[in-house]
Design a protein around this nucleic acid. Structure first.
Length: 412
DNA sequence: TCTGGGGTCCTTTTCCTT
DNA sequence: TCTGAAGGAAAAGGACCC
């Protein structure tokens, strides 16, 4: 036993990043196999408020719905963006985050499906269950992504992790019909990059010695955490690849990017990352926001804004109650017609999950923000969360006048 | 004709206290 | 009493991610 323990302690870290291949589109194609190979975009609205497929609910099996009954991009009017597009649609230049109106000009015949998060979450739970049955140390990184600590899992060290990765891929496919890509490396940073090397259905094994030949030629943008802004700033200094980033001294990076970011950039370029795989975490904030059908004015559309505002507070309160949290920091977010944004928040003495209280405090926040310009989005957020069992809740309706429509709303 | 929604984390600013 | 330093908490904004 002692020998086994000693061996276990010296095992090299093997961390996997698993990424489902074209997750939303793949789930939709399981439901509507007749759309295979066609240009399909997903986005534009939620299924629960928007039944676009004309024969759905008619009793016809989903896979028998005729192609003619699917809505086309050219028939859609309204706001919204593409969440994801199939490869056939991407061939037309259509892609994620593109406005639907623009996409409709590029590929009017594309089929438009509404986003169905509930369905994606069901598949998400299924594939994660498959993973934890095999490898219990799993970190949730969203609906279609996880990190897994292979280090002490049987097979996790064989062929650098390839044996276990193959097993997980097969188990997920057998259980869901979906494929995924997996990268295995000494840490999360490299595993995340590796999972993209051979998409779809890929397995990539990365060791420390692979840093220079495999990672350094890549664009800085491939580092998880370097977005468009940081990339542009790096480019302005003539740094385009991870290798070029690694060539800069830590001191130089700290000088130009600040203490924390500079040090992090240096570590990342050298493939260093000690972050553990975190299996459980508490939420930091819970929020709801909505973009209006048309831009609304605080005075002219006061009644409508008031209704939306109340609904948002009620939704957040329901989310808090369902998830078992209460919060002390209550805030609003808004976006003006010109797309500039503003946030305000206020921290109260006692945590609450009560809609009327949220509305009252959020209403105070709203009074602190300029409301001359039209608005396109309004959101309500609660932070400084505490699990509800641990707090004395703010007395809900005890001495509150209910979801007030009047004085607490400023201009509304 | 632009540009969703739900998050996390970090930095900077501001305010308050010592 | 005034001024400034230092530090913490809250607030605001922004970058980034899925």
């Amino acid at each position: 036993m002692a020998a086994v323990t000693a061996t276990n302690h010296s095992l090299p870290r093997r961390i996997a990043h698993l990424d489902m291949d074209a997750f939303y589109a793949s789930v939709e194609l399981l439901r509507y196999p007749q759309l295979q190979g066609l240009p399909v975009v997903i986005g534009g609205g939620r299924r629960d408020c928007d039944q676009r497929i004309t024969t759905e609910g008619s009793g016809l099996p989903l896979h028998e719905i005729a192609l003619a009954d699917f809505p086309r991009l050219q028939d859609y009017t309204g706001r919204g963006v593409i969440t994801t597009a199939t490869y056939a649609a991407r061939a037309f230049g259509v892609g994620s985050a593109m406005g639907l109106m623009k996409a409709a000009r590029l590929c009017p015949q594309a089929i438009l499906l509404p986003v169905d998060f509930d369905e994606y979450r069901r598949y998400s739970r299924r594939f994660k269950q498959v993973i934890t049955d095999i490898a219990p140390v799993m970190e949730d990184r969203g609906v279609d992504e996880v990190y897994i600590d292979f280090t002490r899992v049987p097979g996790g060290q064989r062929e650098g992790g390839r044996v276990l990765a193959r097993l997980i891929q097969k188990a997920i496919f057998d259980a869901t019909g979906l494929t995924c890509s997996i990268g295995v490396a000494p840490n999360k940073l490299l595993a995340k990059m590796a999972s993209e090397f051979h998409k779809p259905k890929g397995i990539s094994i990365v060791h420390e010695a692979d840093l220079q030949p495999l990672v350094w030629p890549l664009a800085c943008r491939k580092i998880n955490g370097i977005g468009p802004k940081a990339d542009a700033k790096l480019a302005a200094h003539g740094i385009h690849t991870i290798g070029e980033l690694a060539a800069r001294s830590r001191a130089w990076l700290v000088q130009h990017f600040g203490k924390a970011t500079g040090a992090w950039l240096h570590d990342a370029a050298w493939g260093r990352d000690e972050r553990p795989v975190v299996t459980e975490s508490e939420p930091v904030s819970i929020s709801r926001e909505t973009t209006f059908e048309r831009d609304l004015h605080a005075v002219h559309d006061r009644a409508e804004l008031g209704r939306i505002f109340t609904a948002l507070c009620e939704q957040v309160a329901q989310d808090l109650q369902r998830k078992g949290y209460a919060g002390r920091t209550i805030g609003i977010k808004l976006r003006y017609a010109d797309f500039r944004g503003a946030t305000r928040d206020q921290t109260i003495a006692q945590a609450t999950q009560d809609a009327a209280m949220l509305r009252r405090v959020a209403g105070q926040c709203l009074k602190r923000v300029p409301l001359q310009q039209r608005l396109r989005l309004l959101g309500v957020r609660v932070a400084s969360l505490v699990p509800v069992a641990e707090v004395a809740l703010h007395p809900a309706a005890a001495h509150s006048p209910g979801p007030a429509q009047g004085d607490t709303l400023g201009l509304f």
